[in-house]
């Protein structure tokens, strides 16, 4: 344990400073409780998410390289992002900058032109869940838990990009590929690629029970198409929610603001249509940990969740 570093650059991403502020607030609470330090990345820009990469390749490299450069300026080798989209984008840029020399050189030249320090070194990006698991771990969570989440049945929803694709997330050592340098290496701290369990472990340490949620724990929620392709997104979310409900979950724990928003939005729409078994509410895993650490529902901003998990938590005496 302890290979990532206790003090890291924190890239919250646009979402966490607006509609998903509950995730930001609760993340800071959990980090503080676990004795970890988040150094806010000053003046960052959007990572381009899953959208900009479809329009421009070099543009997204630049967007992410600028953030990396800011992290280097603040003296960091490690960036931590709480959003699947953000950590994906940064890791994707990391992959291309490392494996494609021409991309690296071009990016550095363009950074200089844009008035940003070029990259002397490429910082690594981790998802915040991985960081919590490795720098604190279930043991520490157990120690800090004052109000165990006893009786709470959780469906742990990881979404797509937390462990995928292994090229960027480095969750799986792969032998294929023609280019030796471009072959992915597994990171020591990485979660299991097809059966992630870090969130299960942390929430179970806090007293919750995980329900069986395979294979929907890594099924797509519609992601970048949640606004532009409503039919597909609606179907995907329906499958996720129904699986959770039918496996007995009280609540879905999320670790990405986009997945969370997509689940909540389509949950409401599905309920309006009268689709059965879709009424499981969603909460960020950090909110649940915050509750377990003795914080109030107000502290972790449970009211912000449009799917309203309060009644369920109240019924179990957890909020």
């Amino acid at each position: 344990m302890g290979v990532i570093g206790k003090r890291v650059a924190y890239y919250p991403g646009c979402s966490l400073e607006g509609a998903a502020r509950a995730y930001d607030v609760s993340t800071r609470i959990v980090a503080r409780e676990l004795g970890l330090e988040l150094d806010y990345l000053e003046d960052y820009n959007c990572c381009g998410a899953m959208e900009s990469k479809n329009v421009t390749f070099m543009g997204t490299m630049l967007l992410n390289a600028r953030n990396m450069s800011l992290a280097r300026k603040q003296g960091h080798d490690v960036i931590v992002a709480p959003c699947n989209g953000c950590s994906f984008s940064l890791q994707r840029a990391e992959y291309f900058l490392e494996t494609d020399k021409s991309v690296f050189e071009r990016v550095n030249a363009l950074l200089r032109e844009g008035g940003v320090d070029p990259l002397d070194k490429i910082p690594h990006t981790y998802h915040i869940l991985e960081w919590f698991y490795h720098e604190a771990g279930p043991q520490k969570v157990k120690e800090k838990t004052k109000r165990p989440l006893r009786g709470l049945k959780v469906a742990n929803y990881y979404g797509c990009l937390y462990t995928r694709p292994h090229f960027y997330a480095r969750t799986y050592a792969h032998a294929g590929g023609q280019d030796e340098d471009a072959r992915p290496r597994k990171r020591d701290t990485a979660d299991d690629d097809e059966h992630p369990y870090y969130m299960n472990a942390l929430l179970e340490a806090a007293g919750a029970t995980s329900v069986n949620f395979e294979p929907m724990h890594t099924q797509c929620c519609g992601g970048p198409h949640s606004l532009s392709d409503e039919m597909v997104s609606e179907k995907f979310v329906m499958m996720i929610l129904q699986t959770a409900k039918r496996n007995g979950a009280d609540i879905i724990a999320t670790e990405c603001p986009l997945c969370h928003a997509s689940l909540e939005m389509y949950r409401h729409r599905l309920m309006m249509k009268g689709v059965p078994d879709v009424d499981v509410p969603a909460a960020y895993f950090t909110q649940l940990l915050g509750l377990a650490f003795g914080y109030s529902a107000n502290d972790v901003k449970l009211k912000d969740n449009l799917s309203d998990p309060l009644p369920v938590l109240k019924r179990l005496g957890l909020a």
Binding site: S52, N54, P224, D229
Partner: peptide, 23 residues
């Protein structure tokens, strides 16, 4: 196609402000 329209709309916002605003 729809997703492309959205991708462009999104990217233009990033380009303009450097950040995205959900609303």
């Amino acid at each position: 196609y729809p997703s492309k329209k959205f991708d462009k709309f999104f990217t233009e916002q990033v380009l303009e402000y450097g950040r995205i605003e959900d609303g």
